[in-house]
């Protein structure tokens, strides 16, 4: 079999996805055996021109991580799309928008203002698209209006969410994709939730109210949600073996995004949680108690859409609320 040509690229990312490739330990040898890495800016320092010089569809599979945040991200992935037969949205940022997507709760002007006005950095200067320095003229790409996942700018062939994808997922993905197995677009996303793989003991849900994790001493054997701490596990695709709850006794934050076929992770979780929080004695609850139960879920948007806002129904904040 011909060796495959593969590429890795990062957009607006934390770098975790890049590192995750190395997490696969010796499996990297299998990968190398089956594929040549022809483009990997993070590790190999190729130049834009190198990519441009490639034939169309020269790359067999391009793994792109990170959200699409700037004009540069967009331009780069468009170029990669031309050069690659297949594109894999690698990691949650490129699959569903990712953590950076929370930036969509603010306008890009607000973001820049906040980002550059902390005490240590605010010298009144804001990034300019063009600026003159001694060496000549510099051009900086601008931020896009809002963060989008990869599939809003180019077509995506496979999704591999995870923050970052874990070795178990990668093993499956690499084996399948490099081995030319028939993999559907969404097949690498689990259709079951994190609860399916979580080992904690669960009860039927009768949650009085949601409490911040620092106020609860977590029993590591028991379902964290049952203990009144918001856990996104029920609404999150479970490709991960649930390390957060099972190993760290930390609630799932929903990084894998929704299960296969579900569109809106946040509203799904909202529906589930709102149904069971305050369920006990709901018949006789006074208005203020009810409000207390509802308000106990602080920042519902931030909590339910931590990773998936850009791919949700509403995607980004639509200006200021009128009226």
């Amino acid at each position: 079999m011909m060796k495959k040509k593969i590429a890795f690229y990062w957009c607006a990312a934390c770098g975790g996805c890049e590192v995750s490739v190395l997490d696969i330990d010796e499996m990297i040898l299998d990968v190398i055996e089956k594929a040549d890495i022809v483009f990997w800016p993070c590790a190999m320092d190729p130049k834009y021109e190198d990519l441009e010089a490639m034939e169309d569809e020269e790359i067999d599979i391009a793994f792109i991580n990170g959200s699409i945040r700037s004009e540069e991200n967009k331009e780069m992935v468009e170029l990669i799309r031309e050069k690659a037969k297949k594109v894999v949205a690698y990691g949650s940022c490129s699959s569903i928008g990712g953590l950076f997507g929370l930036g969509n709760l603010s306008s890009k002007e607000e973001l820049i203002e906040v980002g550059y006005s902390t005490r240590s950095t605010d010298d009144g200067v804001r990034p300019q698209n063009e600026s003159k320095v001694e060496e000549g003229e510099l051009e900086l790409p601008s931020l896009l209006h809002h963060v989008v996942p990869l599939d809003r700018v180019i077509e995506v062939d496979h999704y591999l969410p995870g923050c970052p994808p874990l070795p178990v997922q990668l093993e499956e993905a690499f084996t399948a994709l490099l081995g030319d197995e028939d993999v559907g677009k969404y097949d690498l996303i689990s259709q079951k939730s994190v609860c399916d793989v979580c080992a904690m003991d669960r009860e039927e849900k009768r949650i009085e109210k949601i409490r911040p994790i620092q106020e609860v001493s977590i029993d590591p054997e028991k379902c964290i949600l049952d203990q009144g701490v918001l856990c996104m596990g029920p609404a999150t695709a479970g490709m991960c073996e649930a390390p957060c709850p099972s190993v760290a006794a930390h609630p799932c934050v929903g990084c894998n995004g929704p299960v296969r076929g579900m569109k809106d992770q946040g509203s799904r979780m909202l529906s589930a949680l709102a149904s069971v929080v305050g369920i006990e004695g709901e018949e006789n609850m006074e208005e203020d108690e009810l409000q207390e139960a509802i308000d106990s879920i602080r920042d519902p948007t931030g909590s339910f859409y931590t990773f998936s806002l850009p791919s949700s129904y509403l995607q980004y904040r639509r200006g200021d609320v009128d009226g």
């Binding site: 149904s275 305050g278 509802i294 639509r318």
Partner: peptide
């Protein structure tokens, strides 16, 4: 029996999200 209590909680919470997203909860 008690379905509408759930409705109430769902809709109230949904309103908060709409507001965050710049949509008038009304």
């Amino acid at each position: 029996i008690n379905g509408n209590y759930k409705t109430k909680r769902k809709i109230e919470m949904m309103s908060k999200i709409l507001k965050d997203m710049g949509i008038n909860p009304e």
